[in-house]
């Protein structure tokens, strides 16, 4: 067992756990978007940042990938932590304004508006990559992936065309934290060609 502190309260964790896993165990709230226990962590959204302190030294780390260690002091609600969160939420509100899920989570953390301009009012996807990780790690296929890099990064099937590889399992839709995959799945698996005859009652 590893013993350390979160918000000045002593907690215990199994070796190999992350700070986030421990916090969840103790029902300490840390917001996350790109994290899901079913797939590997990518540390992409940076909403789960927490502050480590040791005397006058301090540093922010992503709790979803930071491994626990004996005696560390973790703080989840410091000014620096809240500053990162607030700006990440504001940027998300401008980047994927159509996502109700993001609006809700942001509002829960006190961010209801953004000072940034909105480029595409219909955008929902935040490019967190949970869907591609689910497809690869849970379903065992890689029907969708990240294409392009940097600011142009987006998710989709190769060449942005429907792909045979997709088995339409819906795993990506379930895991997507923003609801973006709902409207994207048709572009990945293709729109079913057969029309179903309604069941006779």
């Amino acid at each position: 067992m590893i013993t350390f502190n979160i918000n000045d309260t002593e907690v215990q964790a199994e070796p190999g756990w992350t700070v986030l896993e421990t916090a969840r165990q103790y029902e300490i709230e840390i917001p996350t978007l790109c994290y899901h226990e079913a797939v590997s962590s990518s540390g992409a959204c940076r909403l789960c940042m927490v502050e480590l302190k040791d005397g006058s030294w301090s540093k922010l780390v992503a709790s979803c990938i930071y491994p626990v260690a004996e005696g560390i002091n973790v703080y989840t609600e410091t000014e620096r932590v809240k500053n990162v969160r607030r700006w990440v939420f504001e940027m998300l509100l401008a980047q994927c304004p159509a996502s109700g899920e993001i609006k809700q989570l942001a509002a829960k953390h006190g961010v209801e508006s953004t000072r940034f301009s909105i480029k595409d009012p219909d955008e929902e996807c935040m490019v967190c990559g949970l869907c591609t990780r689910a497809c690869e790690e849970i379903v065992g296929l890689s029907a969708i992936s990240m294409v392009d890099r940097g600011v142009h990064k987006k998710i989709g099937a190769p060449f942005s065309r429907p792909t045979e590889v997709c088995v339409a399992c819906g795993c990506c839709v379930t895991i997507c934290p923003t609801g973006a995959m709902r409207s994207r799945i048709d572009a990945v698996r293709g729109i079913p060609k057969i029309t179903l005859t309604p069941l006779a009652v």
Partner: peptide, 11 residues
């Protein structure tokens, strides 16, 4: 920017 993390990609 490689685009992986949000503060850099959007910030």
């Amino acid at each position: 920017s490689c685009g992986k993390c949000l503060p850099c990609r959007l910030g």
